[in-house]
Amino acid sequence: MTIIKGSNNVISEGVKFGENVTIGHNVVIYEGTEIGSNVIIQDNAVIGKQPTRAKASILPEVKKLPPTKIGSGVTVGTSAIIYANAEIGEDVFVADLATIRERVSIGEKTIVGRGVAIENDCSVGRNCKLETNSYITAYSDVGNYVFIAPYVVTTNDNYMARSKERYDKFKGVTIKDGGRVGANATILPGKTIYEDGTVAAGSIVSKDVEKESLVVGSPAKQLRKVPENQLLRNQ
C-alpha cells in the first residue's frame, strides 16, 4: 500500500486505504472512512464529517452516521467536503469547494463541479455532469447521463419555510436518464424531468417536463421535441 501524504493531515482511527492514494495538505479524514485505490485527495478537503444540526432545524437528530465510502479512481478537490454516510462511486471527480451531504450516493464517472452543493438524501447516477455552482436540493433523485449547467437551482419547499404543514411535504426534484437543464434554470419542488427532457437556460419549471421535450420560458412551456441527434440513445 502506497500513501503519499502532505503536511498537517488529521486521519482518524479505522480509516481504510486502497493502493496508491495521494493526500494533500491539511486534509481531515474521519473515523472509519473507506477509500479505494488510485484516489487523489487535494488540500483542505474534509471527508466523513458528521452533520451538525441547527437548533431550528426540522431534520431529525441523528447521533452518529455510518462512515463515508470513496470508490477507486476518485479525485476530491481542494476544500471539498464530503459528509458521513455518503457513497462515491468509482472515477467520480469532485471539484474544488464542492459539498456532498450525508446519505448521498453518486454513481461512477460523474463530475461534481466547482462549488456544487448536493444536499442530504439525494441520489445521483453515473456519467452525470453537475457544473459550477449548481444546487441539488435535499430528497432529489438524478438519473444517469444527466447534465446540469452552472447555477441551476432545484427546490423542495412549496411553503418557503412558513407553517408546520410543510414538515411532511418536502419533495425534491426528479431528473430521469438523459435529462438536461440549462444555466440559471430553476426547478420547483416535486417536479419531474422525464427521459431526455431538456430545460432551456433561465427557465422556471413549474410542471413536469415530458419525455424528449424541450421547454423554454417562465413558466417553462414546451417549444418542440428534442432533435433525434441529441437524444441519449443516439450518442
Rank of each mutant, 00 (worst) to 15 (best):
3 I>H: 11
4 I>G: 08
9 N>V: 10
10 V>Q: 10
13 E>A: 15
14 G>D: 08
15 V>L: 11
16 K>N: 12
17 F>W: 11
23 I>S: 06
23 I>W: 05
25 H>V: 08
26 N>F: 11
31 E>S: 15
33 T>E: 05
34 E>G: 05
35 I>G: 01
37 S>A: 11
39 V>W: 09
43 D>S: 12
46 V>L: 08
50 Q>L: 12
50 Q>V: 11
56 A>T: 13
59 L>H: 10
64 K>E: 15
66 P>R: 12
68 T>L: 09
71 G>S: 10
72 S>K: 08
74 V>L: 01
75 T>V: 13
76 V>T: 02
77 G>D: 04
79 S>C: 04
80 A>Y: 04
82 I>R: 06
84 A>S: 15
87 E>I: 15
89 G>D: 09
90 E>V: 02
90 E>Q: 06
97 L>I: 00
101 R>W: 06
103 R>F: 11
105 S>T: 15
108 E>G: 12
113 G>H: 03
114 R>D: 04
119 E>T: 05
123 S>G: 14
133 N>E: 04
137 T>F: 02
142 V>A: 03
152 V>Y: 04
161 A>F: 14
166 R>F: 02
174 T>G: 02
176 K>F: 04
178 G>F: 03
181 V>Y: 00
187 I>D: 01
189 P>V: 06
190 G>D: 07
193 I>Y: 07
193 I>S: 00
196 D>L: 02
198 T>S: 07
201 A>N: 05
204 I>K: 03
206 S>K: 13
207 K>W: 06
209 V>K: 06
212 E>H: 11
214 L>V: 12
217 G>D: 03
219 P>S: 11
221 K>D: 00
222 Q>D: 04
225 K>T: 12
228 E>M: 01
234 N>Y: 12
